[in-house]
Simulated assay, not measured.
Amino acid sequence: MDNTVGNLFNFKGYNFDHSFINIDLVENIEDFKIRNDDVFLITYPKSGTIWTQQILSLIYFEGHRNRTENITTLNRVPFFEYVNKTSNFFEAPSPRLFTSHIPYYLAPKGLKKKKAKILYIYRNPKDVMISYFHFSNWLVTLEKTENIEHFMEKFLDGKVVGSRWFDHIRGWYEHKDDFNILFMCFEDLKKDLRNSVLKISSFLEKELSEEDVNAVVRQAAFQNMKSDPQANYGDIIKNIVGTRNSEGRFLRKGTIGDWKHHLTVEQNERFDKIFQKNMKDFPLKFIWDINEK
C-alpha cells in the first residue's frame, strides 16, 4: 500500500518527509529499544530544532564546547526517523541524543518508562508557519507554495510534514504524565538564553561550570550559529538535500513576531479564531511579540 502523496509519507495518520524517511525504523518504531540515559529532542518543524540540537551538543560534549572536535550537530544529535548514514543507533555509545518530530502516539514504548528524557521545544505557531512557508519554498524536497494564503491553508489542515501543529503540541502535552518531559518555549530561549541553558542542564542532570555555561551560551547565540558550519546544516543542504536558489538559509531569522510582516489583518484574525478553537484552556504560554513579557 502506497502511503505517499507528493513529498508526504503518511504513517498512522502522521506525515513524514518521504525523501529521507527511515521506513524500517518507522514501521517498527514502537519496539525501538530505549536506554535509560537516552535523550530525545522533540519539536514540530521550524520550532527551533537546529538551535536546540546545538545547545544539547554543547552541554553534552566538551569537544564541541572547546572546538577540539569537528563533528556536526546533526551527527551528535541525529534525526531519529530520518536516514543518517553516519549513525548506527544500536551501536552508538551512551548517552544517545536524538532529534525527532514524531507525535506522542508514535513514541517508542520504552520512552514511557520515564527514565529516558524528552525535551519538547515549542514556538508560537504564526512564526512557525511563516518560517515553514519560506523553508518549503527553498528546499527542493518540499512542495513549493505560491503565497502565504495557500500555505496557511495547508498548514492549518496539517497537509505538511509534521501534520497539524495543534495536534502535535496538544498530544505531547496531554500525555506528558506518560513521559519524563520538559516543555520549553522557543521565545524564552530567545529572551534569556543563559537561564534557559541552566534549566535544560538541570533537567538533564548535567552539571556545568560557569565557564562551561558561558561557552554554551556564547556558541549557541543565533548569529554565531548561523556562521558555524558544524551547526548550520550548510554542507548538508548544499551537497545532499538541494535548494531552489542560493539565497536562502536553513537558519533564516530566528526572530519573534516575524508573522506581523507577512499576515494580512484578515489572515491574522482567521488564524486567531482557529487557534482559540483548538487551544482553548491550553495551559502553556505563547509569546507572539518580541516586546511581550
Rank of each mutant, 00 (worst) to 15 (best):
D2W: 05
T4Q: 08
G6K: 02
L8C: 01
F9I: 02
N10Q: 09
G13H: 05
G13Y: 03
Y14E: 01
Y14W: 11
S19K: 12
F20I: 10
F20E: 10
I21R: 07
N22A: 10
N36S: 14
D37G: 10
D38Q: 07
P45Q: 09
P45W: 08
G48P: 00
W51Y: 06
W51I: 00
Q53V: 03
Q54D: 14
L58E: 14
F61H: 15
E62R: 15
H64M: 14
R67H: 11
N70H: 15
I71Q: 10
L74I: 12
L74W: 11
L74V: 14
N75E: 15
N75A: 12
P78V: 01
N84K: 09
N88Q: 04
N88D: 14
N88L: 04
F89V: 05
P93F: 11
S94V: 12
P95Q: 13
F98W: 12
F98R: 04
T99Y: 11
A107Y: 05
P108I: 00
K113S: 13
K114V: 06
I121A: 11
R123P: 01
K126W: 08
M129L: 06
M129V: 00
Y132T: 00
Y132M: 01
F133D: 00
H134Y: 05
S136N: 13
L142F: 15
K144A: 09
E146G: 05
H150S: 11
K154N: 14
F155H: 00
D167G: 09
H168N: 12
R170Q: 12
R170G: 04
G171T: 02
Y173V: 02
E174W: 02
E174P: 02
D177M: 04
F179D: 07
N180L: 03
I181F: 10
L182S: 10
F183L: 09
D192C: 07
R194T: 15
R194P: 11
N195A: 15
I200A: 07
I200R: 05
I200C: 08
S202A: 14
L204C: 01
E205F: 09
S209P: 12
E211Y: 14
E211L: 15
V213W: 12
V216F: 08
A220E: 04
A221D: 11
A221F: 07
F222E: 04
N224R: 08
N224L: 06
K226C: 05
S227V: 04
D228H: 02
D228R: 02
Q230L: 12
Y233A: 10
D235I: 10
I236R: 14
K238I: 04
R244Q: 09
N245I: 09
S246G: 13
G248I: 08
L251M: 14
R252I: 03
I256W: 14
I256H: 13
G257L: 13
W259N: 00
K260H: 02
V265G: 02
Q267F: 00
E269G: 00
F275M: 08
F275N: 03
K277C: 06
N278S: 08
N278I: 07
M279A: 03
K280T: 08
F282C: 06
F282P: 03
P283N: 09
L284V: 04
I290M: 13
